[in-house]
Simulated scan of single mutants.
Amino acid sequence: MSKRDYYEVLGVARNASEEELKRAYRRCAMKHHPDRNPGDASALDKFKECKEAYEVLSDGGKRRIYDQHGHAAFEHGMGGGNAGPGFGGPDMGDIFGDIFGNIFGGGAGRGPRRGADVGYVLDLDLEEAVAGLEKRLELPTMAECEPCNGTGSEDGKLETCETCHGRGQVRYQRGIFSMQQPCPHCHGRGQTFRNPCAACRGNGRVEEEKVLSVKIPPGVDTGDRIRLAGEGEAGPAGAPPGDLYVEVRVRPHGIFVRDGDDLHCEVPIRITQAALGDTVRVPTLGGDAEIRIPAETQTGKVFRLRGKGVKSVRSRSAGDLYCKAVVETPINLTNEQRELLDRFEKTFTGENARRHSPRSSTFLDGVKGFWERMVS
C-alpha cells in the first residue's frame, strides 16, 4: 500500500513552520497514542505514521529532500546517512519523550505515574459565592491501600521485575521504529511481588469515599477553580497522588444578575411613582437600600448604587449595583380606579397628548417619515 503524503498525515500546509509541525505532531500522537487506544492496531499504525512524518519534516535537510523527491528518496537511500527515518537520525523515543514526557508521565526509568487529578463541580448560591464559606465534599476516589501501604504486596516483600529489570519501561522494536511502553509484567512499577495483598488484590489502591473540607474564598464566580494539592487519586505502587480541582458554578439568582464585580437587577415601580417621583427600597446583598425615583422616570432608566456589588477574589474594592426601573401596568383594578384612569386618559387629547408622551411622539414621527419615504 502506498504511503500517504507526510504533510497530509500531520494535516499541515507544505509551508508549515517548525512550531506548526510540532503542534500538529502533538495532536496526532496524542490522539493515536497506544496508551489511549489499547489493543487498537489501526491506532498504533497511525501513531507510527505520524512519528515517521514528523521525523522527516522536522529535520531541515530531510524535509528539503522529501519536498524534491517524495517517499522515493528514503526508500532508495537518497540523501546520505541522515536522509531517511531510522538511518542515523534521532531516536524517535527521545523525540517523543521531549514533547510528550509531561503528558504521558515521562520516559524510561521514571517508574509508575502519579495518581490522576480529580475534578469536582461545586454549585453555590450567589450569596455563598460572594460571602465565601467552608464546604464539606464527599467524593469517590482511589485511595492508597492501608494494609499494604500501597505496595500491593501482602507481606511487604518486593522484588526487582525480571522483565524490565527495575526500569518500569520496556522497549519494543517494530521494523525501524523503537517504542517504549510501561512494562506489562509490573505495570510500570519496576518491582513485583509473590503474594498480592488481599485487600486491594495487588493493585495498591482501593475505592473509597473521601470526605474533605474546602474553604471557598469570598467573591468566587462561575469558572473559578480551587486546587487541593495531593487530594486526587492515589498513585499506583506508592507513587505520589494527583490533585483535586474544585470548579465553582454559581446558580442563577432570583433577583440579581452578576457581571464581573457588578450586579444588575430590575426594580418594578407603579405608574404614579414613575410620573410623580418617589423613594423606593431595593434589596442588596448587604441589606435594603433606598433609591430616589425622580418625577417623569421612564422604563429602562438605570440607577447606580456604588459599592453595593461584589468584591471578587481578584478585586480590592466592591463593584456597583445597577437597578433598572420597570414601570408596571396596574392589574385587578377597582371600579373607582378604572374611573379615575378613564378621566385621566381623557386629558390626553390632540397635541397635548404628544407633549406628555415623548417616546410615543418619537415613534409616531418615525412612522410618518417611513411612509413618506415609501410613497416618494
Rank of each mutant, 00 (worst) to 15 (best):
E209L: 12
L212H: 10
I216M: 09
P217G: 00
P217L: 07
G219H: 00
V220C: 01
R225H: 12
I226Q: 09
A229R: 13
G230R: 01
A234Y: 01
P236D: 05
A239M: 11
P241M: 06
D243I: 05
V248G: 05
V250E: 06
V250G: 08
V250S: 08
R251L: 15
I255M: 10
F256D: 04
F256W: 05
V257M: 11
R258M: 09
R258K: 00
D259L: 09
G260V: 03
H264W: 08
C265H: 01
I269Y: 02
I269W: 08
I269N: 02
I271T: 12
T272M: 05
Q273N: 10
Q273I: 03
A275H: 01
G277L: 09
D278F: 02
V280Y: 06
R281S: 15
R281P: 08
L285E: 07
G286P: 08
D288S: 15
I291S: 03
I291P: 00
A295M: 09
T299F: 01
G300W: 02
G300K: 03
F303Q: 04
R304K: 13
G307Q: 11
V310C: 12
R314L: 07
R314E: 08
S315G: 08
R316A: 12
S317Q: 13
D320H: 13
C323S: 11
K324G: 09
K324C: 14
V327G: 03
V327A: 01
E328L: 03
T334S: 12
R338W: 15
